[in-house]
Design a protein around this nucleic acid. Structure first.
Lengths: 129, 129
DNA sequence: CTTGACGTTTACGTAAACGTCAAGTAGGCT
DNA sequence: AGCCTACTTGACGTTTACGTAAACGTCAAG
């Protein structure tokens, strides 16, 4: 059990540089254990990295991602803290829902554009790929 | 007809600084006309700004947004260009669909987290906001 | 015993996206 | 005329998110 990974493993799997992974550690987003001075990543660390990259794709700053990881890891604090967390999560949710609407709008616009392009091509007797 | 806006108007409406709007112009994303040396934004310019900000929320770089604006403005070029545009749009679409999935996943995780937080609070006899 | 692949730290560099003055212009109010 | 407010153009500063190079350790294969 308890599979582990080297920095190179994760680098290849997720197609990010080792520099990037170390950078995330510098910012406190990852905290792998060590074998001597070499980093050893657990399955849990790997999930963290996956979450980081997902957050990045969604346009969160690494700082924000750090806060989200805290949420993810530690629903254990005081009640007041938990309530703050819940508030933050609701804010996130709002932002994400807006973002989804943005995406849908852009997708519609892209459809539209593609149709217009196709029409132009058609009217010239050419064909789209 | 033909409503126009000052840089301050747009700045207030979209809650961005004038510096930001000028920056977009420096990058070629906006091209307002002038009254003397003052910038005059048309309704069309305003739409452009709206699209820029939407693209930004979606995590596109300003450079990418520039390319998208070209798509948006000029389905008029050569056939080869149009075909390239269509290709680009399909790539965008792929990326956006992936991003939507990311969002859905994160929303699920947030639901999960919120439930867990709520349970913890409940088990302590407290109530969420 | 050297070569190569992988890892390490330290540290300066850089591109993107603005922020933040500074200094000047131009119209409108009193 | 004096002042306010909104606008202008530089130009340097800042933050974020890494890139990149230097200099070195470690182990396995040839």
């Amino acid at each position: 059990m308890s599979e582990t990974f080297s920095i190179g493993d994760l680098s290849r799997e997720f197609e990010v540089t080792t520099r990037t992974i170390r950078h995330y550690e510098d910012l406190g987003l990852l905290a792998p254990s060590r074998d001597g001075q070499n980093r050893i990543y657990s399955a849990r660390d790997r999930v963290h990295l996956k979450l980081i990259l997902r957050g990045r794709r969604l346009g969160f700053s690494l700082k924000e991602i750090g806060e989200l990881l805290e949420l993810y890891d530690a629903p254990n604090g005081e009640a007041s803290q938990l309530k703050r967390f819940i508030g933050k999560m609701r804010d996130r949710r709002e932002a994400l829902l807006e973002q989804r609407e943005d995406i849908d709008r852009v997708l519609e616009e892209l459809d539209d554009l593609e149709r217009r392009c196709a029409e132009i091509l058609d009217s010239r007797g050419e064909h789209a790929a």
